[in-house]
C-alpha cells in the first residue's frame, strides 16, 4: 500500500490522465476457460480478474442440498503475486467478507429455484490488483454466469466511486484507493435499478453520499453496455 501526499487531481485530470468520471480502459472477454461452464476475464486498467462458473450441478455432501432451490457459492481469491507485497495464499478475513458480499450481489439476479438440490459455483481470481478488485470480480462473474446459461433477471453491474482531493471520482485505482477520503463499492441490476451491493468506508456527508450513489448508477449503465457487447461478441460466429 502506497501513501502519497501529492495531489491526486491536477487541473481536473487524475494522475493517470483520466477525467474524474472516466473509467480506466476496460477489457472484457468471455469463454476464456474451456473446462468451465461459463467464464470471463475482465480488466479495468491494471486490475484484472478471471472468473469461472460451474453449474448448476449436483451439490455434495448431500446435507448441504436445499430441496426447494439451488444455491450459489462464491470464492473471491487474490493471487499471491497480484499485489505489491505478496499476499499470503488462502482465505483471509478480507477475502471471506468479499466472497460473501459478492454472493449476495449476484444472488438476486439468478433464478436458482428452478434447480433444486444443485449448486452454482463462482470462482473469482484476481490476477492483477490495482484497486476496485471486488467490483471487477462482480462484473466478470455476472457475464460468466450468463455464458454458463444460468437463468438471470438481469446482469449485475458493479463499479467503485470514491472521494479524492475533495472530488467524487469513479473507478479508483490502487493509489487513489489508498489515499481516498472515502470509497464505495456498488452493484446494480440496471434495468430496474435494483442495488445488490453497497459498501462504503471513509467520511462523506449525506449529500456527498447521495451524489456518489447517483454517479455510481450512471457509471454502471456505461459498463452494462460493455458487458452486453462482450456477450454479443461471443455469439457472433
Amino acid at each position: 500500500m502506497v501513501k502519497t501526499n501529492e495531489k491526486l487531481i491536477v487541473k481536473g485530470k487524475r494522475l493517470d490522465g483520466r477525467a474524474i468520471e472516466d473509467l480506466r480502459p476496460v477489457k472484457m472477454d468471455v469463454d476464456v476457460i474451456e473446462r468451465a461452464d461459463g467464464s470471463a476475464q475482465v480488466a479495468f486498467g491494471n486490475t484484472e480478474t478471471i472468473v469461472s462458473v460451474y453449474g448448476p450441478r449436483k451439490l455434495y455432501p448431500r446435507f448441504l442440498q436445499k430441496s426447494d432451490t439451488g444455491i450459489l457459492r462464491c470464492r473471491y481469491n487474490m493471487a499471491p503475486f497480484s499485489v505489491e507485497d505478496r499476499k499470503r495464499p488462502g482465505p483471509g478475513r478480507r477475502s471471506i467478507e468479499i466472497s460473501k458480499v459478492t454472493r449476495l450481489a449476484l444472488e438476486p439476479a439468478t433464478f436458482l429455484t428452478d434447480f433444486p438440490k444443485t449448486v452454482v459455483d463462482v470462482f473469482i481470481e484476481v490476477l492483477r490488483g490495482d484497486g476496485s478488485t471486488r467490483v471487477a470480480g462482480v462484473n466478470a462473474a455476472s457475464i460468466a454466469l450468463a455464458t454458463a446459461g444460468v437463468p438471470m433477471r438481469d446482469l449485475v453491474v458493479a463499479c467503485s466511486v470514491g472521494k479524492i482531493d475533495g472530488k467524487l471520482v469513479v473507478d479508483l485505482n490502487g493509489l487513489e484507493d489508498n489515499n481516498s477520503e472515502a470509497d464505495i463499492a456498488f452493484a446494480i441490476m440496471p434495468s430496474k435499478e435494483k442495488v445488490t451491493l453497497l459498501q462504503m468506508d471513509g467520511r462523506l456527508t449525506k449529500e456527498e453520499l447521495f451524489e456518489s450513489l447517483d454517479l455510481a448508477k450512471k457509471t454502471c449503465k456505461k459498463i452494462y453496455e460493455m458487458q452486453k457487447s462482450a456477450l454479443k461478441e461471443s455469439f457472433k460466429d
Binding site: V101, P108, E193, V195, M200, D201, T205, L213
Partner: peptide, 18 residues
C-alpha cells in the same frame, strides 16, 4: 458524516430505499 455502509441480505434495494 457517514463513515461506513454495508448492505446485507439476499434481496436487492432500490435507490430510494437506500
Amino acid at each position: 458524516k457517514i463513515c461506513a455502509l454495508q448492505k446485507q441480505g439476499s434481496k436487492e434495494l432500490t435507490m430510494d430505499d437506500i
